[in-house]
Design a protein around this nucleic acid. Structure first.
Length: 145
DNA sequence: GCCAACGTTGGC
DNA sequence: GCCAACGTTGGC
């Protein structure tokens, strides 16, 4: 098991790159992941803890996992939410994938067929089990041992 | 541009 | 509580 995965939950966060991309995160170094307004995604956000990894997926034209970020805060209320129990977390950029892992590659990989990204294409915040995280990191040529 | 897969809203 | 209508996301 890559050292990077030890004792960490891995998540996958979807974003439309024209709204906020991994490049923006590379520039900003840190961001607050806000605006989630879906209960299931919110419930996943609430389970995040400091030190967790979050893979960033670009929807739309790119359709690929492009990099890794790290969760650096506990979930806390999203100030933009007008009422309702919505949260956000703070992220820092961790590492860009050397090679983006495309949706078509993921779909073509038998061992990833249970990934929520495939099974529940509209969910924007989802857990990634360790076995899947290992495979994705390997496919992205992100050597973190 | 279309459509599948949701999620939400509102009438009943 | 059900369901039709509508809205949104996101892949193709």
């Amino acid at each position: 098991m890559p050292a990077i995965l030890k004792k960490r939950q891995t998540w996958l966060l979807k974003t439309e790159p024209s709204t906020y991309s991994f490049k923006n995160l590379l520039k900003d170094k840190q961001t607050n992941w806000n605006g989630v307004r879906n209960y299931q995604a919110r419930n996943n956000l609430k389970k995040m803890t400091i030190g967790d990894l979050a893979l960033i997926y670009h929807s739309g034209d790119e359709k690929a996992v492009v990099g890794i970020s790290k969760v650096i805060s506990e979930p806390y209320p999203d100030p933009d939410a007008q009422g309702g129990d919505w949260v956000q977390v703070d992220l820092i950029v961790f590492k860009a994938f050397e090679k983006p892992v495309t949706l078509s590659e993921i779909k073509a990989t038998q061992s990833l067929k249970e990934l929520a990204l495939i099974k529940q294409s509209r969910l924007s915040v989802m857990p990634v089990v360790e076995a899947h995280a290992e495979i994705l990191l390997k496919m992205g040529k992100t050597d973190e041992n």
